[in-house]
Design a protein around this nucleic acid. Structure first.
Length: 261
DNA sequence: ATTGTGGCCTGCCCGC
DNA sequence: TGCGGGCAGGCCACAA
């Protein structure tokens, strides 16, 4: 699924779409437009205009519009893909179909030069909004400092993993990366977020950044060490214990009860 | 404020 | 061969 590594790949791809006049906007499914955004308003904003910047905060991709006080917010949900000039931002998405189906093209910007930027999403869990509230997101998980991470966790009785996935506290970590980071940091996802010692906070910070950097280079959030074992009967690569499946914060979590404490 | 839960959305896979 | 049920989880609305 698109987590921070995928959305960063999408952002880099979206840079190819900058400074190119938009000729037409095609909306494949109105439900993909969020926050009351209409196809007419989208056309009013974009036709004849150019995108001037592609920024990312957490899993939100923000496209600035040249000379206009408006921004486009792109969310990819679980199965969202970005394609520019026929090139996909990522090859494989965990939990998403590998098929490329035209019907799943939910938004298409056609440029005057004949190219296009397409959002393709089988399940419509993603969407496009106008002027997204970027301040509602916590610090980006790739840039977060130790002090910021400490602030995001301290005083919370919520399970550690639920807190890591709370985008208003820390932006960019999804279910797969969350499991991978906690696995590497040897921390149980069930721990109250505020119960970490200073040393454990440092360990988490170290592995958070390390894991994200590694997964971005590898090319996807599904390429962690834990992923192949994330199934019934899966075993810990470190101590051989059978992994446990728990529902934490409403999501399936796989973890090693032997070394994650 | 914080925390937890259910619903949305649909492709895919399994068992019958 | 077809069909129904369960599962996947990011995000949002809502309840306590």
């Amino acid at each position: 699924m698109p987590e921070l590594p995928e959305v960063e790949a999408y952002r880099q791809l979206a840079e190819r779409a900058l400074h190119r006049p938009v000729a037409q906007v095609r909306v494949g499914d109105r439900r993909f437009l969020r926050g009351g955004l209409s196809p007419a308003r989208l056309r009013w904003l974009l036709v004849g205009a150019q995108l001037s910047a592609a920024r990312r905060k957490g899993k939100l991709l923000v496209l600035d519009v040249e000379g206009r006080p408006h921004r486009l917010g792109l969310r990819f949900g679980m199965t969202g893909r970005l394609r520019v000039d026929g090139v996909d931002g990522v090859e494989r998405l965990a939990f998403a179909s590998q098929r490329r189906v035209r019907r799943w093209d939910r938004l298409r910007l056609e440029f005057r030069d004949g190219g296009s930027l397409v959002m393709n999403d089988a399940r419509l869990l993603g969407g496009v909004s106008l002027d997204p509230d970027e301040s509602a997101l916590g610090p980006d998980a790739l840039e977060v400092t130790l002090a910021q991470l400490r602030r995001a966790l301290s005083g919370s009785s919520a399970p550690l993993k639920a807190r890591l996935l709370d985008q208003s506290k820390l932006a960019g970590v999804g279910n797969l990366v969350g499991d991978e980071v906690l696995y590497r940091a040897s921390l149980a996802p069930t721990r109250p977020a505020g119960s970490l010692s200073a040393a454990e906070q440092r360990r988490l910070h170290h592995h958070l950044r390390g894991t994200l950097t590694e997964l971005m280079a590898a090319g996807g959030s599904h390429l962690g060490r834990l992923m192949p074992e994330r199934q019934l009967g899966g075993r810990c690569l470190r101590c051989g214990a059978e992994l446990r499946r728990s529902t934490i914060g409403g999501r399936t979590s796989w973890w090693c009860p032997a070394h994650q404490r």
